[in-house]
Nucleic acid binder design. Structure first.
Length: 643
RNA sequence: GCCAAUGUAGCUCAGUUGGCAGAGCGGCUCAUUCGUAAUGAGCAGGUCAGCGGUUCGAAUCCGCUCAUUGGCUCCA
């Protein structure tokens, strides 16, 4: 038979050879490294016998699917170890994920940290035994009998469509329902680590029972595992929730409440700088600034539909049943800006109207959702709504994306963002406006725009807003969790609900299109992202403190004050520490705060008119004339402020 | 909301079988005027997250609540 290899070469092999045998025939090394194989695009076990001409790719740990085969086997090894130690545990599911694997167990008592150590020990034993994995198939009835007493596996089997093969994998005394593929034997799982225990609902629905999930990861070599764990630890050192507090960007207070961070002077300064930048940029791009109330009567949200779709997420004041006026803090800005649009008549000549607002919003998140500055109950969104004619929507959409890309580049985060095209789901009736035709046309429009721009995006079902599809810009935090940082939405529903119109050139009243968008996202979340991205070392232009001046003797304080005033007059953000002692400690403290510049002066500098300059990332630049330092600094600030 | 873990001074942490709440760093005062973390002396700083219970006696044991953290669900 003829086998086409992944590099395009075609080789002749004996009929009936397994993928592993072919890998070994290709090279000894490949045979050793092989974990799984891909035959005509389908990932299979290495033991798969090949009977006819095909395309064959041998998968190693370097390929995503190779990794997943190893991780999937690791999850089986973990399940086997759990059953050895806790025979009463019921197995649910245990897949490979992006960074490793997990398995969900139904156990009477959730596992503890000590249990993880025990399970790891048992896993090591299973790995050392190098037990081969065997695949076999059963009929539906046989499979149901086999998993008698396990409601989870029974449910999975019952959901398989008639005629679908039901495969199982056996390793020693452990057998699991599994589509595969797997590596050849447990010995391949050489370096692994169980990372955490978590609760997780069966099949991801809060209506179901909560199971106990164990997360883990595995590598081919101990060194790779050690390297991964080290990186994980380093990433967590950048955690905005830790670093942001240490660097005094924000704090929280029990008496204030959950999800209500207190932004401290440094955090507030950075946000102010970003806000001024964004508002100026938007103004130059034709946006009109609005300021609208932080609350409204429930009537407004009833028109918009938020009352039906979002009531649980709102802070509501007043009880309707007691005959009181019912107000709610706003969870979004849209209905307010729509009322501004409606306060005047609009001709097609007026459009597009681009209303923008730096908008505090309030959402009553449930207690388990709050997280640092990323998920909070009050946040400030750089929000805007663009009301335009159908003919203008494509151009406006592109203009918004241009603004967003410009802002991302200014923040230096364009390579850290992924694009998600968030679509509706016809199955989730409660969540979306019921107008399948409008959903289809709007999604087709948005997709065609994205393709025209040539954006590299991922499609996601059931992630849309209730009134239309979204382009979400996603950022991964230090724990690998993805959050939306900015969003761009086309709304087909609300113009009609608010009866928004414009008079077209033919004298007819027509419905405008509405684009919802945020340009820099919400400032709290964006600040969190920037802290993690830069490990607290904010770029010079947005650093809340750009230069710290340190005096060595009381005699040099006046000299430093003089230069501080010159820097201040030039718009540089500085502070002066006049404690003329512990100079080493003060420098270390300033370095710990990741300040861009640290300036030291004593009697010598005061006499010579110089400053000792230390620059972040470059270390000690030595002594230089004060004038030279100042022009260098101003030059650097100017350069980075022009985007 | 659900499953878990955690909570002692501004920070990092100690506190034994329940028996006087501690250290280092930081802060303040005085002395020192010092060159890339650690000068000396002194002082202040705590409702041991909160409330209740058990006990002669609770930071410690039990219960509830609040907050923080990791997940799940939800979401910008």
């Amino acid at each position: 038979m003829k086998i086409t290899l992944f590099d395009g070469n075609v080789k002749e092999f004996e009929n009936g050879m397994s993928a592993l045998e072919i890998a070994k025939a290709l090279s000894q090394k490949l045979g050793k490294k092989a974990l799984a194989a891909k035959i005509d695009g389908n990932v299979v076990d290495l033991s798969t016998k090949i009977e006819k001409d095909c395309k064959l790719e041998i998968l190693t740990f370097e390929e995503e699917d190779g990794k997943k085969a190893l991780w999937h086997t690791a999850s089986h090894v973990m399940a086997q170890a759990v059953l050895h130690l806790y025979p009463e545990a019921k197995l649910a599911i245990g897949p490979a994920i992006d960074t490793g694997f997990y398995y969900d167990f139904d156990v009477p008592e959730p596992f503890t940290a000590e249990d993880l150590t025990k399970i790891e020990k048992e896993m090591k034993r299973i790995v050392a035994q190098n037990i081969p994995l065997e695949r076999f198939e059963l009929s539906r009835q046989e499979a149901l009998d086999f998993f008698k007493g396990n409601p989870y596996k029974q449910e999975l089997i019952n959901e398989l469509t008639e005629g679908e093969t039901i495969s199982l994998y056996k390793q020693g005394d452990f057998t699991d329902l599994c589509a595969g593929p797997h590596v050849m034997s447990t010995g391949k799982v050489k370096a692994f680590k169980l990372l955490s225990i978590a609760g997780a609902y069966w099949r991801g629905s809060e209506k179901n029972k909560m199971l106990t999930r164990i997360y883990g990861t595995a590598f081919e070599k101990q060194e790779e595992l050690a390297e991964y764990l080290k990186k994980l630890k380093e990433a967590r050192e950048r955690d905005h929730n830790k670093l942001g507090r240490e660097l005094k960007f924000f704090t929280t207070n029990e008496a204030v409440g959950q999800g209500l961070p207190l932004i401290m002077p440094k955090g507030a300064k950075t946000i102010q700088i970003l806000q001024r930048f964004v508002e100026d940029e938007e103004e130059s791009r034709g946006y009109l600034l609005t300021k609208t109330p932080y609350m409204a009567k429930s009537d407004l949200y009833k028109i918009s539909g938020h009352w039906d779709h979002y009531k649980d997420g709102m802070f509501i004041i007043g009880d309707e049943e007691k005959g009181e006026e019912v107000l709610a803090l706003r969870p979004m800005t849209c209905p307010f800006q729509y009322m501004i649009y409606k306060a005047e008549h609009h001709s097609y000549r007026d459009l597009p109207m681009r209303y923008t607002e730096t908008s505090p919003l309030f959402r009553n998140e449930s207690s388990g959702e709050m997280h640092g500055l990323i998920r909070v109950r009050q946040f400030t969104l750089a929000d805007a709504h663009i009301i335009c004619t159908p003919e203008q929507v494509a151009e406006e959409f592109k203009a918004v994306l241009d603004l967003i890309v410009y802002i991302m580049k200014s923040l230096g985060i364009e390579d850290d963002i992924t694009y998600r095209f968030s679509k509706w789901s016809p199955l989730n009736k409660e969540k979306y406006l019921d107008d399948p035709e409008a959903w289809e046309t709007t999604q087709v429009l948005m997709k065609s725009l994205l393709d025209e721009i040539g954006l590299n995006y991922k499609e996601a079902d059931d992630e849309a807003a209730f009134y239309g599809p979204k382009l979400d810009l996603q950022f991964k935090n230090v724990f690998g969790k993805e959050d939306t940082i900015m969003t761009l939405q086309i709304d087909f529903g609300l113009a009609e609900r608010f009866d928004m119109v414009y008079v077209d050139s033919d004298g007819e009243k027509k419905r405008p299109y509405i684009i919802h968008r945020s340009s820099i996202g919400c400032y709290e979340r964006t600040l969190a992202m920037l802290i993690e991205k830069y490990a607290g070392a904010m770029p010079l232009w947005m650093a809340p403190e750009q230069v710290r001046l340190l005096s060595i003797t009381d005699r040099s304080v006046e000299y430093l004050k003089e230069w501080q005033n010159k820097l201040k007059a030039a718009g540089v953000r500085t502070s002066l520490d006049i404690r003329s002692e512990k100079i080493g400690y003060k420098i270390r403290e300033a370095r710990g705060e990741r300040l861009p510049y640290i300036i030291v002066a004593g009697d010598k500098e005061a006499e010579n008119g110089t400053l000792a300059v230390r620059k972040r990332g470059e270390g000690d630049l030595g002594e230089m004339s004060a004038e030279k330092f100042m022009s260098m600094l101003l030059g650097e600030i100017a350069e980075k402020s022009i985007f």
